Amino acid sequence: MTTLYLFASAAPPVFDVAEIIMDAQARGWHVCLGLTPTAALWLGEELPELERLTGHPVHSEYKAPREPDVWPPADVILFAPATFNTVNAWGLGLTDRFVVGVVAEAIGKQIPTVAMPCVNAAYVQHPAFDRSVETLRGAGVTVLYGEGAFVPNQPGEGRPEGFPWHLALDAVGAIVSPSP
């Protein structure tokens, strides 16, 4: 079975992650879920159910060096929603968070990776954001941002129901086809 690492930051669409896992599984993916520490905190009570859905522990912290890897290797990685902080940390190679460390390393390992930011229009005015997006794209990451992908909303105008999860899963499937 083809393994998808689904990583998510603390942005409102993270509350849809159980549905997205089930959608990915229906498309033929074996899913492992990684979260930023804040996203794990937000989903705290749901973590046991998410582990049951995936059949794997949900990771939000690095394991100790002598602990075994309990996830199968990734065939592809989807990072969505990716917050302003996550995109910039990843673009700069700041790997103090597990999920950012994995996707930073994925560039060197040539693991296909798709990212879809979830940021508001005020954040994207900061010059670091566009630089980070371009850095990631230049490193081979498919960043679904802009027309035809994720388009920022105005501050305070949360639209979690409008987050284009289907585009993210379609992009992953276009890069690596799931196999039974």
Results as ranks from 00 to 15, higher is better:
Glu67Tyr: 15
Leu50Thr: 12
Ala171Gln: 01
Val141Asp: 03
Ala74Gly: 06
Thr2Tyr: 02
Val176Cys: 02
Val141His: 05
Val14Lys: 08
Trp90Tyr: 05
Thr135Pro: 00
Gly138Cys: 02
Gly156Arg: 13
Gly140Ile: 05
Ala121Cys: 07
Val103Trp: 10
Leu53Asn: 08
Met22Ala: 14
Leu35Lys: 02
Gln25Gly: 01
Gly93Pro: 04
Val114Lys: 03
Val76Phe: 03
Val58His: 13
Val58Cys: 12
Glu157Gly: 00
Trp71His: 11
Ala26Gln: 09
His59Glu: 10
Arg131Gln: 07
Thr142Pro: 00
Ala128Val: 12
Leu169His: 09
Val114His: 04
Pro65Ser: 09
Ala128Lys: 05
Phe79Arg: 03
Pro155Gly: 07
His166Thr: 10
Thr113Gly: 08
Ile20Trp: 11
Leu92Met: 13
Lys63Tyr: 06
Phe7Trp: 15
Asn153Cys: 09
His59Val: 09
Thr2Ser: 15
Arg52His: 09
Ala128Pro: 00
His126Lys: 10
Phe15Asp: 04
Gln25Val: 03
Asn88Asp: 08
Arg52Ser: 07
Phe79Gly: 04
Ala26Ser: 14
Ala139Arg: 06
Thr83Leu: 00
Ala174Gly: 15
Pro81Met: 07
Arg66Glu: 12
Pro57Lys: 15
Val87Ile: 15
Ile111Leu: 11
Ala122Met: 05
